[in-house]
Design a protein around this nucleic acid. Structure first.
Lengths: 95, 95
DNA sequence: TTTTTAGGTTTATAATATAAACCAGTTTAT
DNA sequence: ATAAACTGGTTTATATTATAAACCTAAAAA
């Protein structure tokens, strides 16, 4: 239990962590919903979602709600696992 | 479920958080000790300790052990408070 | 038809983290 | 006594990250 395990830099970011935290409870959420809940700017959120997506932590699906574009995000199994590992590692620091 | 409170950026850093985590348990520690426990490079540690010091989260005292220079760090009351607030805020994110 | 709004993306800039290079002094080896 | 190597750091340069500003496309409203 001794020693500080490295913290996944992808998750050790306020906004990305908030996104993952939301998604782990929801399983699926729209861009606009995440934006509201996190209070992030659209630009920032767009960038951070891409990073999570490229890491395989979330899946991003682009569709439409009527004529309006809707970007939907879903956490992956890999994402859940990474989140849990991160939380465990973090506990050494704050426990 | 009050939403995501901002995370003190000074503490939301792997190395600085590890330092604070160590100091909160020890009350006082030498630079070299912190370096060993955290595995940080001296340069990085030096920079991060300065930041914590400038924020008033720790106090840095320079003395000697015989002829050898010894830099000693101590967490402040403000530092303890900041750490606790950070941990509380973080709990919203990680459950 | 022009303006505004929704739903984003791209790009430029600011902030951060990190390591490399360095410095003052001490100990060890020659 | 002098050179080489080690301690205990600091300073500076660079890579990475976070963030906001500027922008784009299409739809709805005026």
């Amino acid at each position: 239990m001794t020693g500080f395990k490295p913290l996944d830099p992808l998750l050790h970011s306020q906004l990305r962590l908030a996104v993952m935290s939301l998604l782990i409870g929801l399983d699926s959420a729209a861009f606009t919903y995440i934006r509201e809940k996190t209070g992030a700017t659209a630009g920032n959120l767009s960038v951070q979602l891409d990073k999570l997506s490229e890491a395989g932590y979330i899946e991003i699906e682009k569709g439409y709600n009527g004529k309006k574009p809707v970007t939907t995000c879903k956490i992956t199994a890999q994402g859940v696992e990474a989140f849990e590992s991160y939380v465990n590692a973090l506990k050494e620091y704050i426990g």
